[in-house]
């Protein structure tokens, strides 16, 4: 399996890795590379192979075929693991330990010198907003606090590459935002970050590039903006009114191809958004309605994602 050529600027190099479970190819012959210092997103629907891929990269399971290198060392080797910080998908800290003890445990398992470990833990707990609860047992932490602690546990060894599997999934807004801000500043400080998520907004806000995986195969890999703009059509105008409106009459406006009610707003799909805006303004004036918001929407990353994964589904 050598043959894998490592380019110096690559923090993660994946060549043709495959993982089979019985007859199912959970991950089917995928290849990609993540550059040094890059914030890389790994998107896909549930069961697409995201977690299987992260587990192969972090050495929790072995690939059946292919090779993955972390900074030149084979994924799963002690050397590769030593350079990586990991936030597994469903991980937990030791609930019978305090937050502080969990950090110390990780530091010892990564061989971090005690003085350095204490210094880093102190700083991490402060930036994670956990310093006041550092001596409480993790049992008493909320879900958001636990997830922040787990991120701290991944960072206590000051890893060069960070793997995060759905780190903000199911979290309260504050915790999710804190984690995202921290990831951004880590990336700005030069850390390579590999993030799996099914949250398109998150990927869009954070990632330099994203790969979209579906049914164990990569269907697209590019910058979020490029993926977005490459998705054809589906322009829309989103409008909300102060008072109730007859949705049928909205749907009948010229140029509206499809109407969707989104919360208290209406999304009108059209081929010509600017014309539709004018139509809407005229309509509201004539009907005596007051417009609260009016936005033109280009295809989102989510649209790109749906288009790409749907196409795959149809082919299959």
């Amino acid at each position: 399996m050598p043959g894998a050529i490592l380019v110096d600027s690559e923090a993660i190099a994946v060549r043709n890795i495959t993982k089979r479970y019985g007859t199912l190819n959970a991950v089917n012959n995928i290849s990609f590379a993540v550059r040094q210092g890059e914030f890389f997103g790994f998107l896909g629907p549930n069961g697409a192979g995201k977690t299987t891929t992260v587990r192969m990269l972090t050495g929790i399971i072995e690939a059946d075929d292919g090779v993955a290198l972390i900074k030149g060392s084979r994924a799963g080797s002690l050397k590769a693991k030593q350079m990586a910080g990991v936030v597994p998908e469903t991980a937990n800290a030791y609930i019978d330990f305090s937050g502080w003890d969990n950090l110390m445990l990780m530091a010892e398992l990564y061989g971090v010198a005690s003085g350095k470990a204490k210094e880093r833990s102190q700083a991490l707990l402060e930036s994670l907003g956990l310093i006041e609860r550092k001596d409480s047992l993790v049992k008493t932490y909320s879900k958001g606090m636990r997830q922040r602690l787990i991120l701290g546990m991944a960072l206590v060894s000051d890893p060069e590459v960070l793997f995060l599997d759905e780190p903000t999934s199911g979290l309260d807004v504050q915790s999710a935002r804190l984690i995202k801000d921290l990831l951004r500043s880590l990336n700005a400080a030069g850390k390579t970050i590999f993030l799996t998520t099914h949250d398109m907004d998150e990927a869009n806000q954070l990632c330099d590039r994203v790969a979209i995986i579906n049914k164990g195969q990569i269907v697209a890999i590019d910058a979020p903006e490029k993926l977005r703009t490459a998705t054809r059509g589906r322009n829309s105008v989103e409008v909300s009114f102060r008072s109730g409106v007859n949705s049928e009459s909205l749907a009948k406006l010229a140029g509206v191809k499809e109407l969707e009610k989104v919360g208290d707003k209406y999304r009108l799909y059209t081929d010509n958004p600017s014309e539709l805006v004018a139509t809407l303004v005229d309509y509201s004036r004539a009907a005596g309605l007051k417009i609260v918001t009016l936005n033109m929407l280009a295809p989102s990353l989510e649209d790109a994602f749906v288009a790409l994964t749907d196409k795959e589904a149809r082919h299959a």
Partner: peptide
Amino acid sequence: ERLMSCPI
């Protein structure tokens, strides 16, 4: 899983 991802 966390333990298995450590360098051990």
